[in-house]
């Protein structure tokens, strides 16, 4: 990075380095100063607001306000005229192949497959690694993909799925195996509409399994050892112990991880954008929204898709928050 660029605008730099902390400090001190002058009774109820206010301000300015703006835009034409539900109508016409339907279908694939497999692998790895030596080393390895940016992950897997015609050397890992080990014709993983969605989802699963494993593993470790010993003495085998004791006790955590994954699945964008750009029938809602906005210059349509996505996420979000509180309450 060329740092001399920063120096060309010294006043801005000074404002950032000196001004921001000064404003924050003044806010806190000034707020506290004003609170002190309040009558005793009011002080307790006012002080929390002083501290929460900056966060509230930023959330409102950068999240709530744009969301409301998006709702308005979704009812407007490109020129700003009110056109009612037309934008939504256009997204939901011609089931099953028109409008946003392919993206909706794919999001459902993501929702089900991504969520279930990540939970399954996470749980499996958490339970198995609980019993191996060097547990932390092995777990770090599995967790590593979490440290890769989603774009890099998409690029890596694009190479994994790379296709070369049958007579050329196969540089894609998967096709190399298909050709050299199974002696089959190479497959077009990312363009064949029968498999490409699953290929994308598999790449995403690889990237996130470490996250689910680490959280589930922590929940597993939270189960007191003497419960498992009691179950053993009571005559339960290891599988029964998992089914009847371990899993039910991990259930609240499984639900929290599961709903978080559902939200991730609904928001899926980066991997699709990098690997197929939503072509060949792999579009998802987030990518469609992006395309409508920046490529088709259709802010109304993009806003309508955004609102559809938002409506799908909200119930999951509420459920997730409730469960999270339930898990906390158990501690």
């Amino acid at each position: 990075m060329d740092l001399s660029l920063l120096l060309t605008d010294v006043p801005t730099l000074v404002v950032v380095i000196v001004g921001v902390p000064a404003v924050l400090g003044a806010y806190i001190l000034g707020g506290e100063f004003l609170v002190r002058r309040l009558p005793d009774r009011a002080r307790g109820s006012v002080r929390p607001w002083i501290w929460v206010a900056p966060a509230l301000f930023f959330v409102t300015a950068f999240l709530v306000a744009p969301a409301i703006g998006t709702v308005f835009t979704s009812f407007q034409s490109h020129g700003g005229d009110w056109i009612g539900l037309t934008n939504y109508q256009r997204q939901l016409v011609d089931f099953p192949n028109g409008g946003a339907w392919i993206a909706i279908r794919n999001n459902l694939y993501w929702l089900v497959l991504y969520t279930l497999f990540v939970l399954f692998f996470g749980l499996l790895l958490a339970v198995l690694f609980d019993r191996v030596p060097y547990e932390s080393v092995v777990k770090s390895l599995i967790f590593m993909p979490m440290a890769i940016s989603a774009v890099a992950l998409g690029v890596i897997w694009k190479f994994m799925f790379w296709y070369q015609p049958a007579d050329a050397p196969q540089t894609g890992t998967l096709n190399a195996i298909v050709v050299n080990v199974f002696h089959q014709a190479p497959k077009t993983w990312l363009t064949d509409p029968n498999v490409n969605n699953f290929a994308l989802i598999a790449a995403a699963i690889w990237g996130i399994t470490g996250f689910s494993m680490v959280i589930l593993s922590a929940a597993l470790k939270g189960i007191p050892a003497d419960l498992l010993e009691a179950a053993r003495v009571d005559g339960a085998g290891e599988i029964t112990i998992f089914r009847r004791v371990i899993f039910p006790l991990m259930m609240p955590t499984v639900v929290v991880v599961g709903t978080t994954l559902v939200i991730f699945a609904l928001k899926a964008f980066d991997i699709v954008y990098v690997m197929t750009a939503g072509n060949f029938g792999t579009d998802v809602l987030a990518n469609r929204m992006y395309k409508l906005l920046y490529q088709a210059d259709n802010p109304g349509g993009a806003s309508a898709v955004a609102i559809i996505l938002l409506l799908a996420v909200i119930p999951v979000l509420i459920f997730n928050l409730r469960q999270f509180r339930a898990v906390e309450a158990r501690r």
Binding site: R232, V233, G235
Partner: peptide
């Protein structure tokens, strides 16, 4: 012999009741 096949009952200091 595995614990589950010994036909022994045990009461733990912590009671180890299944909370769920």
């Amino acid at each position: 012999v595995a614990a589950k096949d010994r036909d022994i009952a045990m009461v733990f200091q912590s009671y180890a009741l299944y909370p769920h």
